[in-house]
Structures are given as C-alpha cells and as structure tokens.
Design a protein around this nucleic acid. Structure first.
Length: 572
RNA sequence: GUGCCUAUAGCUCAGCAGGAUAGAGUAGCACACUCCGAAUGUGAAGGUCGCCGGUUCAAAUCCGGCUAGGCACACCA
C-alpha cells in the first residue's frame, strides 16, 4: 500500500531542503478537525532556518505544492500548510487493500521470528475468576496481533501448579476432604477447603508448618502428595478448558511451573558457578543492590525452591526450545518489580537475550465490595460472567427479533454475549485499574462489542440485499470512487486507510485497545455513512462504489474483531 | 520510608516522541423508523486536562516539586 505521509514528506523535502524527509515526516500531522485538511505541516520550526515568519514559509510551501495532482487543494492558514488530498485517489488506495479480506491489515514483518507469549496462567485448584480475564484476553489478543504480522507465536500457559499453596491444599484435603464433592464440583470444593485452611491456620499455626512439609514432600517425590496433586491438576484443567472453549482461546503448550522442577538444581548450580549466589539469613539470594533492586530470592532457608528459580529455568528453556525473538509475559502490574529483578538476574547470568524478555503489565480488577480475595471467598467466577452475558444477549435478541429460529439464537447469543465481555476487557488501556460492575459488562449500547458487531451485521445485511452479482462486481474494486467523496464516506475511507498502521502500533505497544478503539471509530463512521447516504441506489455505478465501501468496512471490522478474539456474526 | 503506576466532562475513558477551537461513550434533555437492521443516527448541554513552578514561538502532552489514590519493596506467586 502506498504510504501517503511518506509521499507528502518527499514533496515537501523538495521544497524545504534544509530538513530531511524523515524529519518532515515527523512533523507532518493529522489535524484534529477534518475541515483543516487531511494532513498539515506546521512551519514554526523552519522559521529559524529561513529567518522568515512561519506564515510566509507556509504560504510559500503551499503555493509550490498546489500544482501536485496528489492534492485537491493546499492552503496556508497561519503557520500551517493544510493539505487536502485528492479523495478519489485515497479511496482507490484504501479500497484496494481493504477489499482483500485475507490480507487486509496483515503483513510479514515477523517472518522467521518466534515470539513466546506467556498468558492466562491460572493457579490450579483455584477458581478461574474475573481477575483472570485480563491476562487471558489481553494475552490472546496480543497473540493474534503478532500472528497477523507474520510472527511465529507460541502461546504458553504457565499454570501455577506448584509452590507452598499446594502444600496447603493437600493438607486441607487430608483434613476435611471428600472425594465425591470434589469430583462433582472440583474448583468450588477445593476453594472451600483452601478457604477453610486459612481460617483454621489462624487458630492453629501448626497447620502452616504442616503445609510447608507437605510441599517439601511434593517437591521431593512424595508419592501420595504427587498423586493428589496430579488429580487436582487434571480436574482444574478440565474446568479451565471449559472457559477457554467458551472464549475460543487455545494454547500451544501447557507447561506449568512443575514442569521445570527438575531444572532447579541445575539453575542453582549455574548461579553458584557464575558467582552470583549469596547466602543471606539462611536463604540463597542474588544481590542486586548495585542496580537499586532488592535481592532476588532463589531458595528458601528450608531449601525449597521459589517462583524466581522456576522462572529462570523457564526462560532458559524457552530460549533453548524456541530461540525466541521476544519472550512476553502478560502478568499483572503488581509484579513489575519482580520482573525487573528476574530479567536483571538473567542479564547477570550473561544471557544477552535478557533484553528480549518483556513484561506486559495490566491493572487490577476489584469488586465494589473491595479487592478480589480467593481466600475470603470474594470472587466473581468468569464462567458466570460469560453465562450471564449470553443470557442477557438472548433476551435482547428475542425481544428485537421474535421470529428468529432457536438454534441460531443460541449460537449468536454466545458470539455476542461472550464477545461483549471480551471486547469490554480490551477497550481501555491495559494499565488502568477498574472495578467490576455487572451493569457495566452487560451494557450493550455505545462503544461496546455488540455495537461493533451490530455494524458488521448491518454491513452483511446490506450486502445480502445488494445481491451476489453486485457484491462480486464491487469486490473487484473497479468502481467509480467519485461517489465516495462525501464527508461520511471519506471519513470512513481514511480510517480504513489507517487500519494497517493501527495494527502495527498496537503490536509495538502491546496494546490491543488501540485496535479496539479504531474499529469503534470505523463502526461509527460506517453508521454515519449509512444514515447520511442511501447505499442501494438505482444508479448502478454509484451502488457498486458504495457496496465496495461496505465490503471494505465489513472486512476491517471482521479482521479487527478477530484480533481481539471476538466473533463477527452476519446476523444478530 | 523508597520505587513504580494512575489523575482529562456527573460517570467510564481517548488524546501524551509538544502544535490550530481538548474528543468519544454513558447518564439527563430535545429530536429522527410509510425509508438498505433504531443494539442506530442527529442536536443542545456538559472542562481551572489534580495543584504549583520551569523549558518553549507553542504544554493535557516534556522537566522539577507537591497532593490524592493504587501497587510493590526476602523466604507467597
């Protein structure tokens, strides 16, 4: 696709030779008001070079640019050169790429590069609650975005299936466990035991000691501990997979923490050999004082391992097996300091690839009653949220469309309801904290997933009415773009043109919300176009041009939603 | 105590390698379905961009200092 900004910069560079084309490209901006043009070039910075007032320089440049066929007009307003592009040319460029659904917004910049992305990673035997939605949905979207840019992306679910907590869980089971209850409703039952453990441990500190020993046994090959642990793991995975299935999320590897337990001694030895390990208060640490970081704890005073040790092993394993270009961790912002320590230790171990490890943090989810707390039983289950969203959607569909057939209602309600929850999660910058509110996730008006999906369904509906022949003809892109120069159509066209850069930007920043916001803009622009102009008009040439734009908008929305992991139904 | 993050309309948020009059959605108000899907669109209203300084021709955006909230800071992950 032609890079318009680059073309403009090239032309200005010919006029103002004291700046390089790159510098000019940096200065060129998109005015906030469309009335001021498609692109603008502020001339303040040239004033010093030319010893002339900025408006005079702007006037000069504007005059020289005026003749170029690229522009409809170029005018000087104060210190700005405001450029209005030839709308038909832009429409031609945008349509050409957007009509090609398969390739629109995609690229091959990542060819030959592998990215490992660690996300979701819930703890075994604990509920999959609303707090997990962030890493899961954001991680999935980042995977989709990089995948669409040609990277080979490995999704790994680093299950929290190890650590002292399992000592606690096993203890609790031994004290109060009932196998039938567990089989019937594993997570909720295990959660009840876990909660009870903490209550009891308050009264009887001996329990904590017992739990520590139990984990020690687990880590050192205790048969019964391993049997119970394995059983809990399997049950949990079954539960998690049900939720992943609902959201259409898959993984390439389920390598939990336990998988790396064999590598612990090796890591510890390696740290010793490299002179990094120090004994401190009975524990083994890597001192990071020099880097203004607290020491990284490698082993506890009782000799058992810690997550840091396991994470070091995990990183090494990933480098060896995947030779990653980036190793991404989608983990809550609470752990920012921890990841700084982890990456620093890797660096000190002499691994130059430590710089390729990135922590992608996100903010906290709280409930109106306070922070989520598994122990205190203050949780909202993700599955319940998804189910409620589907029910609500079903009600809305039946209300709006009483004679739709039952089978399709169920299918669409799932796509829209679950899509709404996922979309909602991806609407804001990931770093923001938020408070979970039912009426907020179940709101389907305005800037929401259903709004965007509705627009997609509306496009599909228009195309059905247009008929196959018209769609096939429009699909070639061989249409008269002079019918697409109205304000609404042109706004939409510019958004379509920008879409590929937006995807790249979202990848650079690991920020799916950039895509979310852009497809909201596209949906708004299409809806406005739809209201302002009649699409299926009698005039064949005009109709084909507008149908082509409808196809393009539909493709952009469908591809954008796909990057979010959200479905784009043709009817709803 | 130290570090990191956040602060923009009643509410939820965009905008932040500086640029022209700070944008959406939502709530409330007023409109538009004999017309391609009203889960839509239109209009009016709504702001000391947390506060104080600084840099600059130009600051919501950069720098410094405050304030408020969140998070983290050794045997949990």
């Amino acid at each position: 696709m032609i890079n318009i900004k680059e073309e403009i910069a090239k032309r200005i560079a010919e006029q103002a030779s004291d700046l390089t084309q790159e510098q000019i490209e940096q200065i060129i901006e998109i005015p906030q008001d469309q009335k001021m043009g498609d692109y603008a070039f502020p001339c303040f910075r040239l004033a010093k070079v030319y010893h002339k007032a900025p408006p005079l320089i702007a006037k000069d440049i504007a005059e020289k640019l005026s003749g170029d066929s690229m522009f409809e007009k170029v005018e000087q307003v104060n210190a700005y050169v405001n450029m209005f592009l030839d709308k038909q040319q832009v429409a031609g460029i945008a349509l050409e790429s957007a009509l090609d659904r398969e390739n629109f917004g995609k690229s091959n910049v990542g060819e030959g590069k592998t990215i490992v992305i660690d996300f979701s990673s819930p703890n075994i035997a604990k509920p999959f609650h609303i707090g997990h939605i962030r890493t899961t949905v954001i991680g999935n979207s980042i995977y989709k975005i990089f995948d669409s840019l040609g990277y080979n992306v490995v999704r790994t679910n680093h299950l929290g299936d190890y650590g002292t907590q399992f000592g606690k869980m096993i203890c609790a089971y031994r004290h109060w466990g009932n196998d039938e209850d567990i089989e019937r409703d594993p997570i909720k039952t295990l959660l009840a035991y876990y909660t009870k453990f903490h209550v009891e441990a308050e009264k009887d500190p001996e329990l904590n000691e017992e739990a520590r020993k139990t984990f020690y046994n687990l880590e050192h090959g205790g048969e019964d501990e391993i049997r119970i642990w394995k059983w809990f793991s399997d049950l949990s995975l079954r539960e998690f997979n049900r939720v992943y299935d609902m959201m259409g999320i898959e993984f390439d590897a389920y390598d939990g923490e336990s998988m790396y337990s064999d590598m612990m001694p090796g890591i510890i030895q390696e740290l010793k050999d490299k002179g990094l390990l120090q004994e401190s208060q009975g524990a083994n640490v890597v001192d990071l004082d020099e880097y203004k970081l607290p020491p990284a704890l490698i082993t506890k005073s009782d000799g058992t391992s810690l997550y840091c040790t396991r994470d070091l092993a995990t990183a090494e394993y990933r480098k060896e097996h995947y030779d990653f270009y980036k190793n991404i961790y989608v983990v809550a912002s609470q752990q920012s300091l921890y990841f700084k320590q982890l990456f620093k230790v890797l660096e000190l171990m002499g691994y130059e690839w430590a710089k390729d490890c990135v922590h992608v943090p996100f903010g906290m989810v709280a409930l109106e009653e306070g922070t989520l707390s598994t122990r205190k039983g203050r949780v909202v289950f993700l599955e319940d949220v998804l189910k409620k969203a589907v029910e609500k959607t079903k009600e809305i569909i039946m209300e709006k469309n009483p004679d739709a057939d039952a089978a399709s209602i169920d299918e669409v309600a799932k796509e829209v309801g679950i899509g709404a929850v996922m979309f909602n999660e991806l609407s804001n910058s990931r770093i923001k904290d938020y408070v979970f509110k039912w009426d907020q996730v179940l709101n389907f008006d305005g800037e929401t997933g259903p709004y965007v999906q509705y627009t997609h369904a509306r496009c599909a509906s228009v195309l059905r009415k247009a008929g196959e022949d018209a769609v096939a003809k429009a699909q070639t892109g061989n249409v008269d773009t002079s019918f697409l120069t109205g304000d609404a159509a042109y706004t939409l066209i510019k958004l379509l043109y920008q879409y590929p850069e937006v995807v790249q930007d979202a990848a650079d920043k690991y920020e799916p919300s950039i895509v979310t916001r852009h497809i909201i803009d596209i949906a708004q622009a299409y809806n406005k176009f739809y209201h302002d102009e009649h699409i299926l008009v009698d005039d064949e040439a005009e109709k084909l041009a507008k149908v082509a734009l409808t196809i393009a908008a539909k493709n952009a929305i469908a591809n954008g939603l796909d990057l979010l992991g959200v479905k784009a139904p043709d009817r709803m």
